[in-house]
Design a protein around this nucleic acid. Structure first.
Lengths: 131, 131
DNA sequence: TTTTTTGCAAACGCTTTGCAATGCT
DNA sequence: AGCATTGCAAAGCGTTTGCAAAAAA
């Protein structure tokens, strides 16, 4: 944990280590408040302000991704290799990841046709379970 | 304008008429602040609070759509027949609409495969002009 | 020792809301 | 008359920031 911070040129503090640990263990796209709760359980000295500051730092460093789903504040996940989009279960709040090369290609084709190149995109499917 | 409000079961006030007029003329997805400016030019008695309240009312009535693009507040457009998604020009801030049946189908296929049906979705391409 | 990071509390930007006054039907 | 809608100012919410103290390099 400390090593990977050092490698990214980010100073190692106990607050950052706690947050990274919590992020590494999370698989549910928590928000800043939730991350603060979890980080405090590991290292009580972590403040919410530091959670926000560290998340921004980690985002700049490409370590985490920030998502702004509908309703509520931003939610975070540690960056993983493959790009993916999200399905959001309207009823349970669950977040499911998916990936579609075809959709990616279509997006690029559409943009290109209009004289644009896609820098990044956002695709979210707000769904309900089929009974 | 007044008639279409009445038809939707919404009381007719000069503030609402002003806002609807401004919305009808807009083709640039303005935010609440911008709509307030424009509506005030038509009817000076419109307050920002009423703009927000009326936008919510119109949204519930299906008359306008609210979008939460990256950065800044919500932006609005009058609902038009065909569903569409958006390209956002990162440099100019311009919003371009596009529509792709293929992408829609793929989204539904992906959701279905995971046991979900798509209630609504969000697809935004943040783009830069190709030189 | 120098520079960065921290917690705290205050400020921020956008949006919503309580209230008494006003306006619609 | 009766009830919805208004403007205003205050509050709400998630997020950011100024500052002096603490900690990392």
């Amino acid at each position: 944990m400390a090593a990977s911070l050092r490698k990214a040129g980010i100073r190692v503090t106990k607050q950052r280590i706690a947050l990274m640990q919590v992020l590494a263990e999370a698989d549910d796209h928590p928000d800043a408040f939730e991350l603060h709760e979890r980080a405090r359980a590991v290292e009580p000295s972590v403040s919410l302000a530091t959670v926000y500051r560290t998340l921004s730092t980690l985002e700049e460093g490409g370590v985490v991704h920030r998502h702004s789903f509908e309703g509520g504040g931003a939610r975070f996940e540690t960056t993983h290799e493959e790009h993916h989009d999200h399905i959001l279960d309207i009823d349970s709040g669950a977040v499911i990841e998916f990936q579609s090369d075809k959709i990616e290609e279509l997006q690029e084709a559409i943009a290109r046709e209009l004289g644009y190149e896609v820098v990044h995109h956002r695709l979210e499917l707000y769904c309900r379970k089929i009974p």
